[in-house]
Design a protein around this nucleic acid. Structure first.
Length: 947
RNA sequence: GCUCGAGUGGUGGAAUUGGUAGACACGUUGGACUUAAAAUCCAAUGGACAUUAGUCCGUAUGGGUUCAAGUCCCAUCUCGAGUACCA
């Protein structure tokens, strides 16, 4: 009987689908286990071999947990809103929903043929109105919440309103906009409805704000910082400019500290935690207020607030620097300096992000002519502007301490010739600052600083803050780099907001009327007036009487109002999808209490590290919000997370000689001017030899090109790059599944190397795992049929089996799937050599292999006489008694170098071992009469003879 | 620049708390079977020297700790990922 993988795999995939083998129940006596993959964006290119890597790993884990008796939730779905489908729609006019549905079909077919144990009955698609109804619902919950600093959590806005009407806002401590005026209860009650709404908007967790955004004219959309790579859009590499816009924003900053603290409670990779920590960017210091001094005219003093991590260096301040965009610049600049300052501001505004990044060495700035007063010495300090100070961080102003900060030092040196720039004062004891600033805060004490003299860093910080507080010119402060997240996108293919506008004020549509479905539009581009694509919709108004979307022509601003034209960003749909899987068909609630209380949270989440500061941070934010409001029982959504590494492609290159146009084999290119050109990897064999005819047919430009060969062959160059269509290095899983089977693909992807490591794809080695599956098959069958007997298993058989059980369980616990594949190979090699046919060994072996190669395992199980699926059969139990050894091959080392081994009983004492080894003939030979200085004996491990 | 990770045969990689470096595969070479090929099976395979026995050298580089270092410490180099003037 042959191992016919195509037939077997099709048979079992059909069986699993028909019997809903992997359907998870929301109530069970079994313990729950939730294994989650990052759901894919269904792109038009389909899956390549890199995509399934994480899915195979999580599938092995999920299947293993089923064998261990858990009720496993292992869902899959699609993150199906996104820019590519929209861009395709713009180009072709094809509705993104159609493209998306087609792509999903391809993905589903490709996923199915790999034999994943997904519970497809729970599939979600973020672009499905049944799903995004709940994304809209969460948005409404955020809108109806504010962050109470006293209780340190989000609370209902109703509670805030009743506080306002009874006490005003004086005692409310909230995370909110910072331009809120104080009002009493009487004031509040006297406000108009619109005034009240405007004030509440400053408190809500999702709110409208005028924000400076990254505007990409080519895409007609705003991009998040993490969607911009090297100053251009991640997708399409279009130019990006800064622009002010009214946007929906999410008050993620309210959660900055809790997002940091929560990292301590979850088992996520350290590099990922580090990158979230850096992204949140907590820094502890002080805010200090400086007042401008005005010359004779006696104008108003202006307050300039700065944030500093070094209040201890307050006496080292020799000038101040404001961001060119700082609002005070225009107010304080003197008439004499006006021209220079304005010229500088204009020049900075012109510099694109890209230019600023490419050129960080250039120091530029301008003097405003204004001075501030030092809070303690009362001396005047010149106020400069410079683009090294960022408007978006801190207060957009810094107190410059050139002796303690290199950028301030550079700035002061650069402008040292102007009269406005004072000489650099040194406030550090015994430190030379003539060549560079001294930023090491621990290694000195403060000098030339009045009451701070002689104090080390920590004490000086405390004292400085204490004195600033006395003057009411400063206080200790914690600053975060994290900024509120912009939540509006000027796109078509995203979730519409459940928002309409009455008199310019946003109103939420009541949850019972959700979902608000995306309207049809003729064009997917922004409108000619610069409005988002939904501005093209003809039926996009909200009637408050009918409670439905009606044609725009009915807008009368009394009962029918315009709807929001922006849509939500990509991360909206992915920030709670893991909870929706728990109860995806529920149309009354986002999920039932029973479902969320049963499943609780994700036990294992596998996905790429590129989501570290996007999806994974936003999801944690929404989860904490959902927790505060009592919707979920856990404030972290995933206990454990594993980052799978990227599978890179091995690109192939041919070399075209400049001038002649000849295509030269790699070995002959030395000393010639050649341009490397990507060749499709399918045209190259495993010895790097190019199929020249194939290449000519593929690239007709080279139809008549002359190919210069070495030894009669054209050898291509190889380079490891990210797998991508444009690099012609994509390997499709379909052909591998057709040629070797899904089980081979699964084993091979695991066998390639550690899960978390990135590694190049190379199909050459797949014959190894395929050969293993054939050998496995042959343990059970020969040409006549089944070989399995009821014969007793030998001690040797059992030793092999239990060694394997032990190792595989350890490997799964460590996500070390590559080594368990090796272990299986060793096991099968040994059992083959032992001619093992015992059912007592071969049955457990089939179960062991089942999580990794489920199709062959099902078939073997079936042929062993069982009618049920192998998928929930208990995992074999490791029994140490089969591995007990009575003796050991001791490695005998001389001065740490292993020379030979001696087989000795493990019962021997240290002294016995030493005596046995010393008496050994080879020992005498090694020592050649010398007397050893020392003999190290580690029973069970090693003997080392020194001397 | 900063943060994190990694450097082991021709290749992918293994070595769980310091204790036999190179498991398991791929590739290569030789052999068996075959008219031939595929498939399958057997043997060899880190390098150098040595007919055999064996000797020496080997985990990016240079030091160190230790009876013993791929593993621990210090310094350096290279590569990868993230981040971008964060006051």
């Amino acid at each position: 009987m042959q191992y016919n993988f195509n037939e077997i795999e099709a048979k079992w995939q059909k069986h699993w689908a028909e019997n809903q083998t992997f359907k998870a129940e929301n109530n069970s006596d079994k313990e729950k286990f939730y294994v989650l993959d990052m759901f894919p964006y269904p792109s038009g290119a389909g899956l390549h071999v890199g995509h399934p890597l994480g899915y195979i790993a999580s599938d092995i884990y999920a299947r293993y947990k089923r064998h261990k008796g858990f009720n496993v939730l292992h869902p899959q779905g699609y993150d199906s809103f996104g820019l590519p489908a929209e861009q395709y729609a713009i180009q072709t006019g094809q509705h993104p929903a159609i493209t998306t549905a087609e792509n999903i079909k391809t993905y589903r077919r490709q996923l199915d043929q790999i034999g994943f144990s997904f519970d497809w009955s729970r599939e979600v698609r973020t672009s499905d109105p049944k799903y995004y109804k709940w994304t809209q619902w969460i948005f409404i919950q955020l809108f109806n919440s504010w962050y109470n600093i006293d209780s340190d959590k989000a609370e209902e806005i109703e509670a805030l309103i009743s506080k306002f009407s009874s006490d005003g806002n004086a005692n409310v401590k909230a995370v909110c906009d910072d331009d809120i005026l104080k009002f009493s209860a009487a004031d509040w009650n006297a406000f108009s409805s619109k005034e009240k709404q405007a004030i509440l908007l400053k408190y809500r967790l999702t709110f409208l704000a005028e924000t400076e955004v990254n505007w990409c004219p080519a895409l007609g959309t705003v991009l998040a910082n993490d969607e911009i790579i090297n100053g251009v859009s991640e997708r399409g590499s279009h130019a990006v400019v800064r622009k002010k816009m009214t946007q929906w924003s999410m008050r993620i900053t309210a959660y900055a500290q809790r997002l940091l603290d929560g990292l301590q409670t979850i088992d996520w990779p350290q590099p990922l935690k580090d990158s979230q920590t850096n992204w949140i960017g907590r820094s502890q210091g002080a805010s200090v207020t400086f007042y401008t001094v005005t010359a004779s005219t006696g104008e108003n003093k202006h307050a300039i607030e700065v944030f500093t991590t070094r209040p201890d260096t307050i006496f080292g301040v020799s000038f101040m620097t404001l961001a060119p965009e700082h609002e005070l610049v225009a107010k304080i600049t003197t008439p004499e300096q006006k021209e220079e300052v304005e010229a500088y501001i204009e020049a900075t505004a012109k510099r694109s992000e890209r230019e600023r990044m490419a050129d960080v060495k250039t120091i530029s700035g301008a003097f405003t002519g204004a001075y501030a007063e030092h809070p303690f010495s009362k001396k005047p300090i010149p106020i400069w502007i410079g683009d090294y100070v960022l408007a978006g961080y801190g207060t957009g102003a810094v107190m410059s301490v050139p002796c303690g900060d290199q950028r301030d030092w550079n700035f002061a040196k650069h402008f040292g010739i102007t009269q406005a720039m004072p000489a650099i004062p040194n406030i550090f004891e015994g430190v030379d600052i003539s060549e560079e600033a001294f930023a090491d805060k621990e290694k000195t004490i403060i000098a030339n600083s009045d009451f701070l003299n002689g104090l080390p860093y920590k004490k000086a910080v405390k004292t400085a803050i204490y004195e600033l507080e006395k003057l009411q010119q400063g206080k200790g402060k914690i600053n975060y780099r994290l900024r509120d997240a912009v939540f509006s996108r000027q796109r078509y293919w995203g979730e519409p907001f459940p928002v309409y506008y009455v008199d310019g004020m946003p109103q939420m549509i009541a949850p019972e009327h959700l979902p608000i479905k995306l309207p049809e539009v003729e064009k997917y581009l922004p409108t000619e007036t610069g409005e988002p694509p939904l501005g093209n919709a003809k039926v996009w108004a909200w009637c408050t009487e009918k409670n439905e979307v009606v044609p725009n022509s009915e807008i009368n601003h009394t009962c029918t109002f315009p709807l929001e034209l922006n849509t939500m960003p990509g991360w909206a749909g992915s920030s709670q999808y893991f909870n929706r899987y728990m109860d995806p068909e529920n149309s009354d609630e986002i999920f039932s209490k029973e479902a969320i209380n049963y499943w609780q949270d994700v036990d294992l989440y596998i996905g790429g590290s590129e989501h570290a500061t996007g999806h994974l941070l936003y999801s944690r934010f929404w989860q904490k919000f959902m927790f505060d409001r009592g919707f979920v029982p856990k404030d972290e959504f995933a206990k454990k997370l594993i980052n799978q590494g990227m599978i890179t492609g091995t690109s192939a290159f041919v070399y075209r000689e400049e001038g002649s146009g000849r295509v030269i084999s790699k070995g002959l290119t030395a000393g010639k001017k050649v341009v490397p050109i990507h060749a499709d990897v399918s045209l190259v064999n495993s010895s790097d030899e190019l199929d020249i005819e194939g290449f000519k047919n593929w690239q007709s430009d080279y139809k008549n090109a002359e190919f210069v060969l070495e030894d009669g062959k054209y050898i291509v160059g190889r380079e490891v790059e990210k797998m991508s269509k444009s690099k012609y290095n994509v390997v499709n899983p379909d052909t591998i599944v057709a040629d070797y089977g899904a089980d081979s693909l699964r084993l091979y992807e695991m066998f390639l190397g550690p899960l978390e490591q990135s590694k190049p794809w190379n199909t050459a080695g797949i014959s190894g795992v395929h050969g293993f599956l054939k050998k496995l098959w042959k343990l059970y069958f020969d040409d006549e049929g089944s070989k399995v007997t009821d014969a007793a298993s030998s001690a040797e058989n059992l030793k092999t089996l239990h060694k394997t059980i032990k190792k595989v369980e350890e490997d799964i616990a460590n996500f070390s799937f590559n080594t368990s594949v090796s272990t299986f190979m060793i096991c099968v090699n040994e059992l083959t050599a032992q001619k093992c046919t015992s059912r007592l060994v071969l049955e457990p072996l089939a179960i062991l292999v089942s999580p990794y190669a489920p199709h062959i395992a099902e078939e073997l199980w079936n042929k062993l006489g069982y009618s049920q699926s192998i998928s929930t059969v208990p995992f074999p139990t490791f029994e140490p008694k089969y591995l007990v050894e009575s003796s050991k091959e001791y490695p005998i080392s001389f001065n740490g170098k292993m020379k030979f081994t001696v087989k000795l009983s493990l019962d021997l004492s240290k002294e016995d071992i030493e005596a046995a080894v010393m008496a050994h003939e080879k020992t005498k030979q090694q020592l050649q009469g010398r007397e050893p200085k020392k003999v190290i004996v580690v029973p069970g491990k090693i003997v080392n003879i020194v001397g």
